[in-house]
Amino acid sequence: MPLLQINNMSHDFGGLRAVNNYNLEIEPGQIRGLIGPNGAGKTTVFNLVSGIYTPTEGDILLNGQSIVGLKPYQIATLGLGRTFQNLRLWRHMSVLDHVKMAQYSKISYGLLGAFFGTPKRRREEAEIEEKAYGLLKLVGVADLADQLVVNLPYGDQRRVEMARALATEPRVLFLDEPTAGMNPEELIQMMEIVRLVHREFGLAIFLIEHRLKVVMELCDIIQTLVFGEVIAEGSAEEIQNDPKVIEAYLGKETIL
């Protein structure tokens, strides 16, 4: 059984079909990519799966369970982690608090613990703090734990976001343009991190990218989305040579 299965998902934005008849199957441990020109609906696919929008049609199964109509936090708790194209970090919170916050669903001390500081709360807070440090170490920003995220350089902010997404203990990780706005050096480091977390946690990863190089290097199978429809699916090589993909990216070849 695939870990994540999307069947015939479509979505309309007030009469405009943003995603049409989209299908996807991700097996555990797979890295899959989604490419496409601007405005093709890639982020919409992410938002549909993570529950920010509800699809007009179709079904999404996570681990065999339908997640259509669930709230984003419920979907995240079920094991779908994600990052955002524009980071969406919490600007007044420290790096450590980001990663602790993402373990919200594991907290069981309840309001009583929050109000009165019970021993159970102290224990749980210590546990999630330890785990948070571990994740920060993994992505290489543990020494910045007490900083506010806004004071961090962009590359480090991306790492914090990655650690935050991992802290939700995902089984599938959605990465929305993880290398957007990075310089070549940061880009290589980020690819290393993606490989590392893939190895370390045996995650299935689904990523959107603009830079073909990144997708080609990381992904097993790549989909190309144009105007909300998948026009090609296959390995990096197949995609690179697919005339429909070339046309979508470069325009139709005209022979004079």
Partner: peptide, 28 residues
Amino acid sequence: NFVRSTTGKALNAVRDDEMAADAMTVNT
């Protein structure tokens, strides 16, 4: 006590970015 707990800091997360809070398992 409340504002220093992770439950309480969820308020800050909701304030700074509600969508991200939601995606990070916070019951907004």
